[in-house]
Write a protein that binds this DNA or RNA. Structure first.
Lengths: 391, 391
DNA sequence: TATTTATGTATAGCTTAGTTATAAATGGCG
DNA sequence: CGCCATTTATAACTAAGCTATACATAAATA
């Protein structure tokens, strides 16, 4: 009687490849699994082994597949563990819990303080995680890892948070190291735009897309690139700072030290600043967007102007990178076509046409949950750094 | 007695992987070959087979390897075939012939006419190829394929040359299709900057580099990206149009329809234009650079200004992409630090510092041969599209 | 019922990880 | 200087297991 789960090197490696594929892409048919680079025979054997010990289960037939015998989805048993996403934004801390079957179990948030020191902020996040785990019935030792999103660039090699981070107390901090200590969990730290891009590719409007530019507006504007199905973060991990594209060489001074950066013209602060005279102080960007949808001409105008400015940077990005799809996410996304139409117009005026159509520009599906769920999805996707250990 | 070369599927596939690696990276040791993803045992078997039929040969011991038994380089027998590179620039047509051992055998050129129709230009190129083949002793049927470089974007799906191509008679033409007919050879067409980047990665300053941004100045300025060892050309194949980055919204009108594009400020034409008053007409960019090296203040100044403008675009590119290395190639490269120092200064002023050092900016090694040899190297590298057939 | 696609099962040939042996260099040491 | 330990490359062999292939079966559609 052979053991249910063989321990030989090659078999073990292939089991891990299958598990990694199921973590990253969710339940699949056996036939689709063969595309990870293993033969059907091997997939069959590996799935058999994993099903025997209860790590994968048949989810049920995959309908809507047209002709032929309906395939059956196999997926990881979700209850084997969870991943946690944490978004640390300037005024909010969000936490998401996600199971191994790529199901979002819970999403909570609490107000944050952008002047609080990192330990205080992370301690608050830790409490939110405990609460979320209690409500979903998981223990801390069932958490594979926590993904943490910050509004700024993070240097891959050293883990230090860059100066351009809009959450100033975190600048120069090794957030991953600190978070590991405070949260007592395996941790991953990345930029908010990068992680939101992961979420839109995992669950949202770009599901399955292999080449994506995801433009994310929060306090600043960043972009997350997915190239060939994987996040592209640059040599140092700091790619994506589209918010500091120079739009107007003689414009306002940006906190990066430059002048006329996109951030000084089109981030939510800049938009609200334009309305102070006419609409008074105290507006939030959500108010502006709501007013615009209700027909307020001033609000429509400032959003359109922001779209045009973003369009200039997007055209430069398009000329350089030729992405397949551009998704707009973050606080400006609810503006929809009020922002996107002028953006496209502005981009089209500056884009080099080789003959092909410009890439579609669409709003993300995931709203404010994009970043925090992306943080959880990034943990789910990184089966190497966050291995699933049988309890 | 088993056949020297087995015909079974798996073995054949692995032979092709080995051959592809040797074409792309040149002669390697058996140990290095194992890094293509096959075991040492398989490499051993495959090389044995290929050596037996004379497709690979032991080049000799690889010296300067430190401790241990010296490895022995194995490589493709160069004389099995050749690849051809063709550069169609605005005023020159260049041809290179390269053998399967990555050795450049010959490099010739002839004047071109940027108003001639594509058939005329390609016919002239065909004659140059014939002459080059005659001088190197190869027949046309020994040519695996010809790589053709054009000064503009080429749409991947349709093969059409984009409007931004500075060689106007080629705009809107399916150059690959036409060239196949005129040259009677398998053909690949790509942008000059992309192919020069391939050359610098294959033979030049970026040899072995896996992430590179190669800024190339000819009639316009373009950039070729190597990401993870492979050319990144974008969803449509038209990435890299850095020359149309908007630098001055109110600047000169560019032939792309925009205003103040980098090309209007820093390409060779623009540089020469700045010197017309003081230095008269008839200067070439090479003259300007020579005068600058000799101490001419005006020439130094306009080159420095061009460097500063390129630095603005390079900073935007750096903020977006965070490349590991930036190489300057093309007609401006001989200016060396006269151009590069101001470029770096300008880039540093606008780049977002996450904490890491900015990427090194260096001049390419390959000079005017970069593009044409890159075109040959691209054919060499694409073992799928240009298979080596035993004669 | 014919067609189509997914899955199940089996096998010959091949690849892999691992082990052991041999080859050929360097560097330290007597 | 020669000798020896060390280091790295190549070579040869084996058990485990992967791949391509073939064929059978299952379950849907037209």
């Amino acid at each position: 009687m052979s053991p249910a789960v063989s321990g030989y090197t090659q078999r073990r490696a292939n089991r891990e490849r299958v598990i990694a594929a199921l973590r990253r892409q969710g339940a699949m048919t056996r036939a689709a699994l063969a595309n990870v680079g293993l033969s059907r025979s091997t997939i069959q054997n590996v799935i058999e082994e994993l099903a025997e010990v209860g790590m994968v289960i048949e989810i049920g037939p995959y309908t809507a597949s047209g002709l032929g015998r309906p395939p059956v989805l196999v997926g990881l048993r979700g209850s084997l563990g969870v991943t946690v996403g944490v978004e640390i934004a300037n005024w909010t801390i969000r936490v998401a819990v996600c199971d191994l079957a790529q199901k979002l179990l819970l999403h909570t948030s609490a107000p944050g303080d952008d002047r609080a020191d990192p330990v205080t902020t992370l301690t608050k996040a830790s409490a939110l995680i405990d609460e979320a785990l209690a409500r979903t019935g998981f223990r801390r030792d069932q958490v594979l890892g926590a993904g943490i999103a910050l509004p700024g660039p993070i240097q891959r090699r050293t883990g230090l948070v860059g100066r351009a981070c809009t959450l100033k107390p975190f600048v120069g901090v090794n957030c991953a190291k600190l978070a590991r200590e405070v949260l007592r969990l395996p941790v991953l730290v990345d930029n908010d735009a990068n992680l939101a891009a992961v979420a839109e590719v995992t669950w949202g409007v770009a599901k399955g897309c292999r080449d994506l530019a995801y433009v994310y507006s929060a306090t600043g504007i960043g972009v997350g690139f997915v190239v060939n199905g994987n996040l592209y973060a640059g040599a140092n991990g700091t790619a994506g700072e589209i918010g500091h594209t120079t739009i107007d060489e003689n414009g306002l001074v940006c906190d990066c030290g430059g002048r006329g950066c996109l951030n000084t013209l089109a981030n939510p602060d800049a938009i609200i600043r334009n309305l102070k005279q006419s609409h008074g102080a105290g507006l939030t960007i959500a108010d502006v967007i709501a007013l615009a949808h209700a027909g307020d001409a001033g609000c429509r105008r400032v959003l359109a102007d922001a779209g045009r400015h973003i369009g200039v940077a997007a055209a430069n990005m398009y000329n350089l990178l030729d992405p397949e799809l551009i998704v707009i996410g973050g606080s400006l996304a609810p503006a929809g076509e009020i922002l996107i139409d002028p953006l496209c117009e502005s981009m089209a005026r500056r884009a080099i046409h080789a003959g092909q159509a410009l890439p579609p520009v669409i709003a993300g599906y995931l709203g404010e949950e994009a970043v925090v769920t992306g943080a959880a999805a990034a943990v789910l996707a990184d089966a190497d750094a966050f291995p699933l250990r049988p309890a």
